[in-house]
Design a protein around this nucleic acid. Sequence first.
DNA 1: ACAAAAGTGTTGAGAGTACACCCATGC
DNA 2: GCATGGGTGTACTCTCAACACTTTTGT
Lengths: 231, 231
Amino acid sequence: MSGSQAATDETTTYRAEDYPRPSVTCDVVILTLVEGELRVLLIKRRNWPFEGMWAIPGGFLNMDESLEDAARRELEEETSVKDLYLEQLYTFGDVGRDPRTRVITVVYYALVDAARLNVRAGDDAADTQWCSMDALPPMAFDHKNILDYTRQRLRGKLEYTTIGFQLLPPEFTLRELQAVYEAILKRAIDKRNFRKKILSTGILQETDKTKMEGSHRPARLYRFHPDAARE
Amino acid sequence: MSGSQAATDETTTYRAEDYPRPSVTCDVVILTLVEGELRVLLIKRRNWPFEGMWAIPGGFLNMDESLEDAARRELEEETSVKDLYLEQLYTFGDVGRDPRTRVITVVYYALVDAARLNVRAGDDAADTQWCSMDALPPMAFDHKNILDYTRQRLRGKLEYTTIGFQLLPPEFTLRELQAVYEAILKRAIDKRNFRKKILSTGILQETDKTKMEGSHRPARLYRFHPDAARE
DNA sequence: ACAAAAGTGTTGAGAGTACACCCATGC
DNA sequence: GCATGGGTGTACTCTCAACACTTTTGT
């Protein structure tokens, strides 16, 4: 039972300084949708360990910022975009995950509308890249695991929340929304059933605008229903 | 962009030792079902801060154990029971959550069949207690938050997994299983519909035993279907 | 007029919900 | 024989899945 063992917990006398501490980092899986494909922002490592392999962005937690603040900071450093959807994914802390020292990483994931990204293509050139979630390069640390877990979570959340919309601009066509669902679920969806279901929920509001693209009938634009704050 | 800022991440040169580190603890929400009520194991704090208030068990992470190992260690210290269902819940790390210093806590939750607990009632007497999740005492730190979040997670998981069974002994009656669902969802369920649904999934296996209790018709005992490893 | 994507309805199957009575046992 | 919880079936509604043709635009 607790109380007898010194290292036990917050309920005993405070002796945190007696114990070595692991490092705490915060990593962010940044996802967007390009050409109907789910893509993740990866950074090429230049140093040992895992030199030349790819990793999701992240960094040490500052002492004066919350976990979410840290995630948001990382996110803005990488994308220069604010106010993104951001959610804690999972915390990874296996002993050997970083060969240098003990590192606990709290991972968040973010969804970005590709249109908001001013691509900064040249920037560091080959060091930063949007990779398809379906064709990942060799990943550093346990980051392959992290991305697999992200996809799983995303699929689950798609069914009972509205996260799908976070990958789209404020106004979008139903076909674009359907593409989001298809990319995440990785299966084709019947157009009629999809429209029926989405429209019946009432979270969409029709605009009077349409989107012209190519030589065919223009598509109506929709936006979120203003009073849809639900998850 | 990353690379320019020293503290940035795992992709830059390793300088963890340049930065102060928060403490990392692992806390466990231990749940069981008693008298049709969901109860959580709480420990009364004897020291500042939050002296006299209640907290969930937890302790510092050792450098040579994984997060789950730490959770399992805490769990066994408190319950003396092994092989319990254990799952990571969430990581809490707001700056002010522990007034003494910066503490990141990775919280797990565990489900225990009450019958496996040898109550150890006298032990530390009033210091350790199974409290109803519906009538929580004043809680230390952000532990009230943590318990609210646990309940939410539990409700969600109940619908698409088999965690409910983790609160029961290996053999149980359908009424007992229904009580688990009712305690977690906090609403009455129709007996006939519940049986129909559960039995139609095929995860239950009828035994030839019954359970006598009180002066009425005995109830049939069921167990998990052996090849039901699914979530 | 043709190509290309937008838009639209019906039908059948299965799941969920509401609801009331008989059964086996101890006392 | 009565009190107590165990055990059962039917009818309705709603949701989900399958499926094909017309409409609007640019060229």
